[in-house]
Nucleic acid binder design. Sequence first.
DNA 1: AGGTGTGAAATCGTTCACAGCC
DNA 2: GGCTGTGAACGATTTCACACCT
Lengths: 211, 211
Amino acid sequence: MKVAEPTVERLIQYRRLLERLAEEDLPVVSSRDIGDMLKFKASQVRKDLSYFGEIGKRGVGYNVEKLLHHVSEILEPTCKWRIGMIGIGRLGEALLSHKAFLGDRYEIVALFDVGEKKVGHEIMGRPCFHVDEMAEKIREMDIELVVLTVPKNAAQHCVDIATSNGKIKGILNFSPMAIAVPEDVMVYSVDISIELEKLLFYLKHKEKESL
Amino acid sequence: MKVAEPTVERLIQYRRLLERLAEEDLPVVSSRDIGDMLKFKASQVRKDLSYFGEIGKRGVGYNVEKLLHHVSEILEPTCKWRIGMIGIGRLGEALLSHKAFLGDRYEIVALFDVGEKKVGHEIMGRPCFHVDEMAEKIREMDIELVVLTVPKNAAQHCVDIATSNGKIKGILNFSPMAIAVPEDVMVYSVDISIELEKLLFYLKHKEKESL
DNA sequence: AGGTGTGAAATCGTTCACAGCC
DNA sequence: GGCTGTGAACGATTTCACACCT
């Protein structure tokens, strides 16, 4: 079954919200409640949730526990992913301790860098290897996913090494580069300056309008 | 003139690419070249670029300098934005030194936190104030934009204080929360775990398919 | 009454295909 | 021949509107 990307994005947010609501022991929510809290239209919420079967009760709403279970099921990965992080600068270190990477559906098992102060040491409990050993370690350690937090000049080089032995299935790219990868590797990018610049652009336009 | 969000996103990437090409003294590029480098369809590139006037030469391509100037003009803010950063944890510090915030179109002029070790000190050259002083400092220092890098429990509270005096026009939110803001405040969010989870979701689905 | 599930309509964004210019 | 600019076709996503259930 094919699921549209905006839908997946919202499902992830539903799960997050539902986890909170479940903790607060709220028994039911309506699509309108969810929409208000997450800033989506109620009809959008209903469409998303009905996509995987009828789960709500007409006239009542959705049972929080049941819905959470349902949504989690949809999102749950089949296995625990082993992740390598390339580039342990400030951003890399920040991400290492970031909640996003503390889930139990994945684990950062190895770090890669080129700095003498890092290679050969443990950083926040994970071993750090030299980028030159990366292909080897990826194979040895069964790493299928990498998080890329290197400066833009190094990005493509690191990607080439990482993907060279065909083990890597996905890359989460924090560098501001459009990286080239083999066909079967999936890339998602988080580009901080794009979001900042978008905000600036639309702020400018709103100002113009209101003159 | 209204510009679609995906278009703005691409324009930002065109500018980035063109800056590089200009440095390399490349005189002209075609829509196909640009598309290949950024992974967009050539027709998409042409549509985006023609949206603001005819700027290319048929049979030749686009003059790099001229196009860069043109695109920059479209994206250029009307003023230099003064930014406040709320929450100086690891992520905040990483962003402080991140290239995204080093541009000359904006400047982080103040930091806000609650930690004793930070408040009252300078961090990477910027003064850090207590969150309780935020409303006051925002007014005094003419801050119109905030970057929010606080834990999720603190997010809404900080947003409420920051927006309380109506000076703040935009928020770049790094916390995994749908924050509530006054109508005239624009919010963009960078949600790291959403991107990671999306990647995991589609990787799972690709695996299933290929069975 | 109140709230879900869902086809149909509307909106938004991308891609095609080709005329027109260099 | 090569490449842009653009209306028209297509595809994707959101929203509406209402039947149906409790």
